[in-house]
């Protein structure tokens, strides 16, 4: 596609009047003053509709009996490009492999979503969530309990067969 250039026709200085230009400008602002096109979102009251593929802080899915779905396979700390996941696996009393320690440093995290993509049991998810204010920095290291407590909706994965999907 060729680049088109729009040539602006500007009046000669002798033909311009500052006051008239200023008055037409004021007419424009007055139109907006009395009939504003409101784009501001009243945030805490009005919540944003997050994109279905928005990637925010993590949450861990749990089984019906309250156990984490994670089987401590170690793929997420392996794939994590920011190296923000710490995982120590172990065995619970029913002989299931589970994470004894599962920590995500949300400050190091770059929210690429690869942990969710790689998870074989759909346990760890990035969430459609962004309200992360805390009073101390160490609160941003989410441990397993914290991750399991999260209730925000999870992110939809990108479907390679439908690359333009939302």
């Amino acid at each position: 596609m060729a680049i088109s250039v729009k040539v602006m026709e500007r009046p000669e200085p002798e033909e311009t009047s500052y006051l008239r230009a200023a008055l037409s400008g004021m007419a424009l602002t007055f139109k907006h003053l009395i009939n504003p096109v409101k784009v501001t979102q009243q945030y805490p009251e009005e919540q944003t509709d997050l994109h279905p593929r928005w990637r925010g802080t993590h949450r861990m899915e749990v089984h019906a009996d309250g156990r984490p779905k994670c089987v401590a396979c170690g793929l997420c700390p392996t794939v994590c490009p920011a190296n923000c996941i710490r995982l120590v696996g172990g065995e619970d009393d029913q002989g299931n492999r589970y994470p004894i320690v599962y920590e995500i440093d949300e400050f190091r995290c770059i929210f690429c979503g690869m942990c969710q993509e790689v998870c074989p049991v759909e346990a760890i998810h990035v969430g459609r969530h962004f309200e992360n204010a805390e009073y101390t920095r160490d609160r941003f290291v989410y441990d397993l309990d914290r991750l399991m407590e999260q209730e925000h909706p999870t992110t939809l994965l990108w479907d390679p067969s439908d690359p333009r999907s939302e």
Binding site: R10, E12, P13, E14, E15, T16, S17, Y18, L19, R20
Partner: peptide
């Protein structure tokens, strides 16, 4: 004032001055 004195005298941009 609006049609003669203000015209081109009151305020002119840098580009217009260069053209002058």
């Amino acid at each position: 004032f609006l049609f003669f004195i203000d015209r081109g005298h009151t305020i002119a941009g840098a580009a217009a001055l260069n053209r002058q």
